[in-house]
Design a protein around this nucleic acid. Structure first.
Lengths: 215, 215
DNA sequence: ACGGAAGCGATACAGTCGTATCGGAACAAG
DNA sequence: CTTGTTCCGATACGACTGTATCGCTTCCGT
């Protein structure tokens, strides 16, 4: 058996390069040559990792999706003592990608979202990411509802369609806000204000007090 | 004085062609030649209308923005007898572009949105459209609040920052929902459910009864 | 140590892109 | 009718694009 290389790490490195370039010029504007140069490998190496450009983009979008959802999961896992309400606040902050250092990730996400609207194969990994986030939000919401005053609101909210709908609302809202920040219609601060106001309304509807100073 | 042609109508016709193609392949995937063929003019004619491709795309996005906002305005103007709450419901339905016949417009919008995130010149007309819609929403919300039971909630809501924030929430929510429908994460019906539930919550917060059966 | 499979990077190839150019057709004014 | 200006569409051009190919090197298994 001849030479062997670690394809996994190379693919990941190339995916990073794709993201950097997609952030700068949009996803369709990235060329195999630019990717190769940015990843500091030869064009042939990229071709050996991915048979075609679409395959490369597909891997990249999965890569980003995993990274985001993983970061969200990590964020809400920092301290099991926190309330579900606080966790949800952190999670939405993370998903909205409002912090400056994640602006690039947001652009990439939006770029792939637009691309996915016309390319069915790209849409699937995005759907998976959204489904994972929606499930996460749903779980946090039902948890928060149950931890209300005596779990009073739990009867009306326990995992019913309402929790799912609230999760969908939250997810769509964060996505929309991210886009509006990206094109400069809103500032990050304004978007944050909108998001937190919506969360406050959600706490009220759930009958919980919302996140206290706890972390 | 030599030959003269109606540039305005030609530009508009070309913009339509751009939209059709952007709907099918994304905005960066449209070539001048394809546009010319679709608009049934020669490549030279397109070049004479728009000095450069970016200029063409810019005109097209302005065209779409005007068309959407105009349709929203027309929708809420059909019957001055209706309540502001009903009008807002219609407006959001229109903006969300959930109906099948507007799916193409939604794809175009999303495509340009993504493009605008990396091209400052494209971002400006989009910002203008969003600003117009946000103003419209804000006005409808304050109106609805004022028309509450004795205008009671008007004190706490009259054109304050709350109305603006609610308008921003609504706008971001519709945009996000549109995207989620486009990639198949939600069905149009689910998105509509989310949107209407959010509106119902808004009515409750405003202290108005919401849209009755009134046309 | 040596054969051969796997990886390498340069180059070739066929398209497509946006843009520039150009000779001629069309048409108003004199 | 002639002149002058504007429009027309075809073609040219150079710069990319994604993908295929091809010697050459590298290194594992026997």
């Amino acid at each position: 058996m001849p030479k062997q290389v670690d394809y996994g790490s190379r693919r990941r490195r190339i995916a990073e390069a794709v993201c950097v370039l997609a952030d700068e010029q949009g996803p369709e504007g990235v060329s195999m040559r630019d990717v190769a140069a940015r990843a500091q490998v030869s064009l042939g190496a990229v071709q050996r990792c991915f048979r075609t450009k679409e395959e490369m983009l597909l891997f990249a979008v999965e890569h980003v999706g995993e990274r985001v959802t993983e970061r969200v999961r990590a964020r809400i896992a920092t301290g099991p003592a926190q309330s579900a309400a606080t966790a949800l606040g952190h999670a939405t902050d993370e998903v909205a990608l409002l912090r400056e250092e994640h602006r690039a990730e947001a652009r990439i996400w939006l770029a792939f979202l637009a691309q996915a609207a016309v390319s069915a194969s790209l849409a699937e990994p995005l759907r998976n990411s959204y489904a994972a986030l929606q499930d996460l939000f749903t779980r946090l919401i039902t948890e928060a509802a149950a931890s209300g005053p005596g779990g009073g609101a739990a009867d009306a909210f326990a995992d019913g369609p309402d929790a799912v709908r609230e999760a969908r609302t939250l997810l769509a809202l964060t996505d929309g806000l991210t886009g509006h920040v990206l094109i400069g219609h809103l500032t990050a601060k304004e978007a944050e204000g909108v998001l937190h106001a919506h969360l406050a309304g959600l706490w009220a509807r759930l009958g919980v007090t919302g996140p206290q100073a706890e972390g």
